[in-house]
């Protein structure tokens, strides 16, 4: 992977950090040239995943990286926490499944908003990575 153009780490420790994270990611996405629809998708995805950290682990970190190439604008975001982990990832990815009083649209809904989505979880480490990619000049 080429050296990233931009990196930022946002700590997620309180529910007010959810607001801050989605706002910062929107600003970063706008500066990279993502359009308004994609900015909203990204900000919403960040909101969902940052909330997962707060609810499941209490605290964690959101790492935002610009890994754009000459052909593509690519934003990569990793959410990591040291909480108890997700016991059944397949179940958590099902529509309508919720442990947090939400709509159960958190993880599966988030996956539909962005291009790349991967999740790994074990007790003590949960990492969710998302990517949005657009051809340069098209977004």
């Amino acid at each position: 992977m080429a050296k990233p153009h931009f990196e930022k780490s946002i700590s997620i420790e309180a529910s007010s950090d959810i607001v801050r994270a989605r706002s910062e990611v929107r600003t970063i996405a706008a500066s990279m040239g993502f359009g308004s629809a994609d900015q909203t998708r990204l900000a919403t995805a960040v909101s969902e995943l940052a909330r997962n950290i707060i609810q499941n682990a209490g605290s964690g970190v959101c790492e935002v990286t610009d890994i754009s190439s000459t052909e593509s604008v690519i934003l990569h975001i990793v959410f990591q926490d040291n909480g108890p982990g997700i016991p059944d990832i397949a179940l958590a990815m099902q529509d309508g499944y919720s442990t947090n009083g939400g709509l159960g649209a958190g993880l599966p809904g988030t996956r539909r908003l962005i291009d790349g989505f991967s999740i790994e979880s074990r007790p003590g480490l949960t990492r969710v990575s998302i990517t949005m990619q657009r051809e340069s000049g098209l977004c």
Partner: peptide
């Protein structure tokens, strides 16, 4: 864009 995002997430929320 909020309407788009909510519907894309899977529901008329």
């Amino acid at each position: 864009f909020v309407a788009m995002t909510l519907i894309e997430m899977g529901r008329g929320l």
